[in-house]
């Protein structure tokens, strides 16, 4: 074989992608633990009712000190809404990115008084796909799905329903007008994730908000 003849060979790698994010997420988790703050990562489609549920939560969750991180591609609208309640809030604009990631959270929490908080609710960017792949350092993942989106969503977006600790079905006041079958939806979600609780809520009528608050309080109660 002459000197200038290239030798080709295949080199095994087997290295997972996006692990740099996981390292930062682990640091975030340590920081949250050290302040005894529980963090909830709320994921859903655009317009599913994330901000509305946060507003209802702020109104209903007495006796716990709450902070909010708002993730949106652009704009300050959601953070401004939260700020009207006097709740500490930071807006993250991802500038096009379809998800929050751990470095964004690390940066955002610098603007939150963690030592004075019991929980942080993170509103992820409206998207059922990408946020699932990025650990933020949260303690719990919550998936919201609004009734107009249809009960077949677990077929199309299995990853999110597999990854969450709680599913909240929102806008239940619209059930009479739409063909969303709650029982079929429950069956599908439990097919993927048999132990996961599913709470049906309406921010309009207040249905289920008490169950959601009880779920949060249960998670906060456990040291």
């Amino acid at each position: 074989m002459s000197d200038n003849q290239a030798i080709s060979n295949r080199v095994p790698v087997v290295e997972r992608l996006l692990t740099a994010n996981e390292e930062v997420a682990a640091d975030n988790r340590v920081q949250f633990r050290s302040h005894d703050v529980k963090v909830f990562n709320i994921m859903a489609s655009p317009g599913a009712g994330k901000t509305t549920l946060l507003m209802a939560t702020i109104a209903a969750l007495a006796g716990h000190r709450l902070g909010v991180i708002e993730g949106d591609v652009a704009s300050q609208i959601d953070a401004d809404k939260i700020a009207t309640t006097g709740t500490p809030v930071v807006q993250i604009n991802t500038g096009g990115a379809c998800h929050l990631d751990a470095p964004m959270i690390r940066h955002a929490v610098q603007a939150l008084p963690l030592e004075d908080l019991d929980l942080v609710l993170v509103e992820n960017v409206g998207n059922l796909i990408c946020p699932v792949s990025f650990d933020l350092g949260q303690d719990f993942n919550v998936g919201l799905i609004s009734v107009p989106e249809g009960h077949d969503k677990p077929y199309k977006y299995p990853a999110i329903f597999e990854a969450v600790d709680l599913v909240v079905v929102t806008k239940s006041d619209l059930l009479p007008y739409l063909d969303f079958e709650v029982d079929t939806f429950r069956e599908l979600v439990h097919g993927l994730n048999p132990t996961i609780p599913i709470i049906v809520v309406s921010a309009k009528t207040g249905e289920g908000i008490g169950d959601w608050i009880a779920w949060l309080e249960d998670k906060l109660g456990r040291g």
Binding site: A6, I7, S8, N9, R10, V11, P12, V13, V14, E15, R16, L17, L18, S133, P158, E162, E187, L188, H190, G191, L192, P194
Partner: peptide
């Protein structure tokens, strides 16, 4: 029975590269 435990589909990695040296 409906559904099951996910045993494949979460892979996300660089398996190998082909190089010339």
């Amino acid at each position: 029975a409906l559904g099951g435990d996910v045993v494949a589909g979460k892979e996300f990695y660089v398996e190998s590269i082909e190089i010339t040296s």
